[in-house]
Design a protein around this nucleic acid. Sequence first.
DNA 1: TTGTTACTGTGATTATTATCACTTACACCC
DNA 2: GGGTGTAAGTGATAATAATCACAGTAACAA
Lengths: 224, 224
Amino acid sequence: MDSMIRQFYEIPGKVVALKAGEYLFREGDHAKYFYFVRSGQIFITKFAESGRVLSLRLATRGSIIGELPLYEENPVYIFNALAQSPSEVYAIEFPTLHSYLEKKPSLAINLLKIIGMHMRKQHSKFRDLVLYGKKGAIYSTLIRFANSYGREVDGGILITVPLTNQELANYSATARESLNRMLGDLRRQNVIDIRDGLIFIRDINFLKREIQCEDCGREICNIE
Amino acid sequence: MDSMIRQFYEIPGKVVALKAGEYLFREGDHAKYFYFVRSGQIFITKFAESGRVLSLRLATRGSIIGELPLYEENPVYIFNALAQSPSEVYAIEFPTLHSYLEKKPSLAINLLKIIGMHMRKQHSKFRDLVLYGKKGAIYSTLIRFANSYGREVDGGILITVPLTNQELANYSATARESLNRMLGDLRRQNVIDIRDGLIFIRDINFLKREIQCEDCGREICNIE
DNA sequence: TTGTTACTGTGATTATTATCACTTACACCC
DNA sequence: GGGTGTAAGTGATAATAATCACAGTAACAA
């Protein structure tokens, strides 16, 4: 993945630093830049009128952000990008990226590969949610976080990102209370555990089995 | 859209004719070709272990198909492609497409545009389903079919594709009975009507209002 | 120490959606 | 014109998930 990103560094752009809790952009903003993340973590979310928040990704080093309106006549961001921790992103203006994509086919092809991967992530998430309901959404979110931010310890996987129940619920489009109950069940079944506020997955295969995981690999099944 | 597709005709490939009910490929098949549709209509679906079917698109003239595994090391189709009516597709081998993409940046850029559009479709569908439940899924499906296959008549929109309740339910990941009840309600509210087995939408704005449609335009909000 | 705040955990209730078990309607074919 | 098959429609019930209304907890500041 990093090898695909390296090319983008050669394109003129600027580095933007974000504090935790700071927005890089909000949905509806005029879109001027394509970004990729150099360091830190960035929530990609969408708001509903009702006040609910839908979380889609937690972008990290190497992730691209804000690519969707790249070729639109009146480009507007459709998501919010909010720094979860202090972060640095590299910002490339759309017209600059356009001209580099035209000049360097290998760059366009790399972007195609990256976007194709995003497409597959999105599809697999859709499938999990749609076919296995909230359980599918939640288990799938846990697996994705484990793949992106998990560290193997004590025969299990510790998700190294601190997430509140509400934040996790936003990723699975679930009510906080429902998520809480499901986590409670998983805890009682010894599938997961909470360690200093972080989720520790004892038995990730249980989660995979329950949602008939197609084992699409870490390149696809992640939250980045 | 058609202008973006025209370029692909210049790439060597072959025409494949399909009868109604014939599969172009199935999920799990080794993926060798990238396709685009010349004529007819092709269902893009995915099976669940449980026997349920999830319908994703109804591809038509100008749609691309089977592009997802384009850059994979061991390419496998992840969906089924089933001709709904007699159809013709143009098939380009992946390696051939690769070399043309490398040679012609404008082709790669066009593919980027198309895939970016697919991404947005997918996101908006996800949003509808996740934020407004089955009602969101069903209303959104009706709007998409209206945008892709609707003909304006008598101050309303006639969806010119014959769809059974089961097929519509597959698009919205709903039980047939649930879909049937919802359509019944819409009929009673004079929002839709059935004309010779086709759905006639009297008041599409009702559907749009109910799911807080973001009016993303026909380029995005379709089923192709 | 005591508020304050944000988060977690839970019971009770309601709303939504699926499932099961049918009946009805309609097209098509000998 | 009766028989067959497929799809539509519907009631009853069960399963799933959201909502409301709190009680408990932990961290932190004054």
